[in-house]
C-alpha cells in the first residue's frame, strides 16, 4: 500500500500530463461530435430523399463498426495511401466522427419528439423551413437532447483512451509507458483508473449542472 503511494507520487507528473492530453482530446472530439451530430440529425429528419439515404447509410454504417477500427482506418489505412496524419490529429478526427454519429441519433430522436404543431405554428407565422428549424426546432431539440447527449459525452470522455493504440501520449499511454519502464504495470493502471474515476465523476457533475441550468418546464423527451 505504502509502496503504491510512493510509486504513484513518483509517476504522477507523467500521469497528469497524460490526463491533460486526454482532456484536450476529449474537448475537441466532443465539440466536433456535437456540431456534426446536429447537422446529421437535422439532415436525417428534414432533408430530401437522396440526402436522407446517404446520411442514413453513413450513420448506420459507422454505428455498426468499432471505434478502434475507425481509428486504425484513419491512421494506418489513410497513412498507407499517403495521407500521413499525426497520431493526435488522427485520433481527434476518428473519435470526433465516431461520437458524431451517435449524437446524430440523439438529435434525430429529440427533433422527432417535438410536437408537429411547433413547426406548423412557425411556418404559419411566415418563417421559412430553415428559419423554423434554426429558431424553433433546434432550440427545443438542444434542450431535449441533453440527457442522452451528456451520456454520450461521458462515454466519449472514457473512450478517448483508445487513442493510446496509435501512440497519442494520453493518460492510458502514460500508464503503459511508466508501467513498462518500472515493471509495475498493475499499479500504473490502477493509478490511471483512479484519475479516470475522478475526471469522469467531475464531467458527470458538470453535465448534471448544465442539465439543470437549461431545464425548461414542460419540455421533455416523449417516451
Amino acid at each position: 500500500m505504502i509502496s503504491f503511494f510512493h510509486y504513484a507520487i513518483e509517476i504522477l507528473p507523467d500521469m497528469l500530463s497524460g490526463a491533460w492530453v486526454t482532456i484536450q482530446l476529449a474537448v475537441v472530439c466532443i465539440t466536433v461530435g456535437i456540431l456534426f451530430g446536429m447537422v446529421l440529425g437535422v439532415a436525417r429528419v428534414y432533408s430530401s430523399k437522396y440526402i436522407y439515404w446517404i446520411v442514413t447509410g453513413y450513420v448506420e454504417f459507422l454505428r455498426g463498426t468499432p471505434c478502434l477500427l475507425q481509428l486504425f482506418f484513419i491512421y494506418y489505412g489513410l497513412g498507407d495511401m499517403g495521407l500521413l496524419l499525426k497520431p493526435v490529429i488522427a485520433a481527434g478526427i476518428a473519435l470526433g466522427i465516431n461520437t458524431s454519429v451517435y449524437q446524430a441519433e440523439y438529435f434525430r430522436g429529440a427533433i422527432q419528439s417535438i410536437k408537429p404543431g411547433q413547426m406548423t405554428a412557425a411556418r404559419a407565422m411566415g418563417l421559412s423551413k430553415w428559419k423554423a428549424i434554426r429558431y424553433v426546432i433546434l432550440p427545443q431539440a438542444l434542450r431535449l437532447v441533453i440527457p442522452s447527449s451528456s451520456n454520450e459525452i461521458i462515454y466519449m470522455f472514457k473512450y478517448t483512451s483508445v487513442a493510446f493504440a496509435v501512440g497519442v501520449p494520453e493518460l492510458l499511454a502514460q500508464a503503459e509507458i511508466n508501467g513498462a519502464m518500472n515493471f509495475r504495470y498493475f499499479e500504473s493502471y490502477l493509478l490511471a483508473a483512479i484519475i479516470y474515476i475522478i475526471m469522469v465523476f467531475t464531467v458527470a457533475k458538470i453535465m448534471a449542472i448544465i442539465e439543470k441550468k437549461v431545464y425548461v418546464p414542460g419540455l421533455q423527451l416523449m417516451q
Binding site: 473512450y159 503503459e176 474515476i197 458527470a204
Partner: peptide, 20 residues
C-alpha cells in the same frame, strides 16, 4: 456500479490482464 461505469474499458482490461 458507479466505479465500474467510470473506468474506461481499456483501463480495466489492462488492470485485469496485469493482475498478479
Amino acid at each position: 456500479r458507479k466505479f465500474l461505469w467510470a473506468i474506461p474499458q481499456l483501463v480495466l482490461l489492462f488492470l485485469v490482464f496485469y493482475l498478479p
